[in-house]
């Protein structure tokens, strides 16, 4: 039986990372677009505090541009971890969405700790046998428990709000509700498993160890407990594989929305690296068919932009 669980988990991990990777490739491979930045732009450093840009400098093209990656990382961190935009602009939603997301981060962290402990057990078993191993277990329990509770609370709150708030209802599709229910179901099951058979996270830690080490040993649990554990693993795996197939993959999109659009203010300087790419894009054919364009799929952007217009 355990072997099935391992296969399901491996499959889910492959699907998840594969789909995320495909998504990243999809967004990365898009052609350069025209500039469409939106201030404040985080990497402007001091100017970012009031939304200023390098365009405030006289003859900006003669000056060295300061791009503070640290400021970008900080803004990104605050946004990702605390959902700052939601806190600022939609407090009601934040009280549901923040626990949901933060709970997920905690669950991911708990998993990370379990993976770390498994690796350590493989390369340095003595460390895991020492007090350090105990500490890692406590951290896993705290993170895992808090994560489950917060996420469950958040997801239930989000469902409630989606169904009761007039502003949201009309925009809510069946899949939006299903997605949240999926979280509630999978985490709910995990929570029950934790209470019933695994409050020190030892079973799940053992499962992770076997995944990491490819040992795939049988999980020491029987009867109803085994069924419960199996169901939990299957539902969590299914959830993991499902996330990137839906618009919940917005965590990938969000990165691009910030980095390649909102904060993408790189100027196209004469003889700079952008020019070459743009010149390529200007050779692409245009097929827009309104009369004033008359794109025939052969004329290029450069031709359409420079051709004589009818007087």
């Amino acid at each position: 039986m355990s072997i099935v669980l391992y296969i399901v988990a491996y499959a889910a991990i492959v699907v998840f990372f594969g789909a995320v990777l495909l998504r990243v490739v999809f967004w990365t491979k898009m052609p350069a677009h025209v500039r469409w930045e939106l201030y404040p732009v985080a990497h402007e450093g001091k100017k970012a505090s009031y939304g200023g840009s390098y365009l405030e400098e006289p003859e900006w093209w003669t000056k060295q541009r300061h791009v503070s990656l640290w400021a970008e990382a900080k803004a990104m961190f605050i946004e990702i971890v605390f959902l700052a935009a939601l806190w600022e602009h939609n407090r009601k939603m934040w009280f549901r969405s923040f626990p949901f997301h933060f709970g997920l981060y905690l669950i991911i962290s708990a998993t990370g700790v379990m993976v770390f402990a498994s690796l350590l057990a493989l390369v340095w078993p003595a460390a895991i046998a020492s007090w350090f191993g105990g500490l890692l277990q406590v951290v896993t329990i705290v993170l895992g428990f808090a994560g489950m509770v917060l996420s469950l609370f958040g997801a239930a709150g989000l469902i409630h709000r989606r169904l009761t708030d007039e502003d949201l209802r009309d925009f809510t599709s069946a899949s939006d509700i299903f997605n949240l229910l999926f979280f509630v179901g999978a985490f709910g099951l995990a929570f029950i498993t934790w209470i019933a058979i695994d409050h020190d996270f030892s079973l799940v830690s053992y499962f992770v160890y076997n995944l990491v080490s490819f040992k795939m040993a049988a999980i020491p649990v029987h009867g109803t407990g085994a069924a419960l554990f199996g169901l939990t693993i299957i539902s969590l795996s299914a959830l993991l594989a499902y996330i990137p197939m839906t618009h919940m993959s917005h965590f990938v999109g969000k990165y691009f929305a910030y980095h390649s659009i909102r904060w993408n203010d790189a100027p196209n300087l004469k003889n700079g690296k952008e020019e070459e790419e743009i010149e390529g894009l200007l050779t692409l054919p245009v097929s827009w068919s309104a009369e004033h364009i008359g794109g025939d799929g052969k004329k290029s952007w450069a031709q359409v932009a420079t051709e004589e217009v009818k007087k």
Binding site: P31, W36, G253, I261, W288
Partner: peptide
């Protein structure tokens, strides 16, 4: 990508990723 390289990425991101939270 040919007809709308100018705005393809920003457009697709907005087309595909709204969480319908109505914050805006």
């Amino acid at each position: 990508a040919e007809d709308n390289w100018t705005f393809l990425q920003p457009f697709m991101l907005s087309l595909e990723h709204c969480a319908k939270c109505q914050t805006c």
